[in-house]
């Protein structure tokens, strides 16, 4: 990219704040904290919290984490020379909002607290559009997905189709957006996410012993692993599935995952491995000096950090042993 030099400011700023992120020692301190308050303190020290220096209650952690997530997007959009590049990561939130709104409409009780307000289309606007069925100015992919969802739901009244159709559309939309950016790093990142989501869904479908056409409905399109591989291996033992994937980048992941699935850890550990896989991919961005990559890496790292913080806080509040919390903690970026 010729515009890489535009990123000089943004990248150096991100590099600077990266240092403030929670590392392994800080997470350890949180886990070993005696009370949830102490754990929260570590978070506040790391710059979490509300803007007006409001001292958060322990049970506010959820709001605090959401706030932090918002802050990250706001910062990136402020410093990035091409803020629209980050729209890619907001798409999932938009589809989440659509799901909430549609489900609220179908069930007749909408909880607006579930809407995420850092999205491409402000949730209030989206709500009115959906209520009045005036969605012609939405992106065409989104519009089609909404229409298909409403049509299918009215036919089957199966709430699962809402998630199935919209998840598919969300990832397709993301991929399209990534391709439009022509940035190989982003395209590959989305593809990895699709593949991992597919592998994960495959394992869950397999554990639940569902049928092929069900799997077919769940799988996302556009990944690097062919749909056929999943379909063919649904009924065969897991080992053959892992063998099929041995020539893909997911070889190691699947080997390890297989081990943990066969031991008692179940799918939990596997999900952690997938998150770590993304982290590892993103970490390559450290060696890129200029470009959007370090920014994306920061975003992903921050997301992981927030996820970790949530796991610890939930664990602390509910008195879960440190070991169980550690088992689920994702690898930190720094």
């Amino acid at each position: 990219m010729s515009s890489d030099t535009h990123y000089a400011y943004a990248v150096s700023r991100v590099r600077a704040i990266e240092r403030k992120m929670l590392d392994k020692q800080k997470f350890d301190r949180m886990i070993d904290a005696k009370t949830p308050e102490e754990a929260l303190k570590v978070l506040t020290e790391a710059g979490y919290g509300f803007e007006d220096s409001e001292q958060g209650n322990v049970y506010d952690y959820e709001r605090m984490l959401k706030e932090e997530n918002k802050k990250v997007y706001a910062l990136l959009q402020e410093i990035a020379p091409q803020p629209e590049m980050f729209d890619l990561f907001l798409i999932l939130n938009d589809y989440h909002n659509i799901k909430v709104l549609l489900k609220g409409e179908f069930s007749g009780n909408l909880d607006e607290g579930l809407l995420l307000d850092f999205s491409l289309i402000p949730p209030g606007e989206l709500k009115i559009k959906l209520q009045e069925r005036k969605w012609d100015d939405l992106p065409p992919m989104m519009k089609e997905a909404i229409e298909e969802t409403i049509e299918t739901y009215n036919r089957t009244s199966d709430p699962q189709v809402i998630d199935l159709i919209l998840d598919k559309a969300a990832y397709a939309h993301m991929l399209k957006q990534a391709e439009a950016s022509k940035n190989q790093f982003l395209i590959k990142l989305v593809k990895i996410k699709i593949d991992l989501a597919n592998i994960n869904a495959f394992l869950r479908v397999k554990l639940l012993k569902k049928s092929w056409d069900y799997l077919d409905k769940v799988l996302l399109a556009g990944g690097t692993v062919d749909k056929k591989i999943f379909m063919q291996n649904l009924q065969s033992p897991l080992e053959s599935f892992v063998n099929e994937l041995s020539r893909t980048p997911y070889d190691k992941l699947c080997q390890e995952g297989l081990g943990s699935l066969q031991s008692s850890k179940g799918i939990t550990h596997f999900e952690k491995l997938t998150d770590n896989f993304v982290m590892e991919y993103v970490r390559k961005a450290r060696y890129i000096t200029l470009g959007i990559e370090p920014l994306v890496a920061y975003l992903k790292a921050k997301e992981t950090e927030i996820k970790n913080a949530r796991i610890i806080m939930v664990g602390k509040i509910n008195n879960i042993s440190g070991e169980i919390i550690r088992e689920r903690l994702r690898e930190a970026y720094v």
Partner: peptide, 10 residues
């Protein structure tokens, strides 16, 4: 009642 992409196996 949910899709398998955005949720966790837990």
């Amino acid at each position: 009642p949910y899709g398998f992409i955005s949720t966790s196996g837990e």
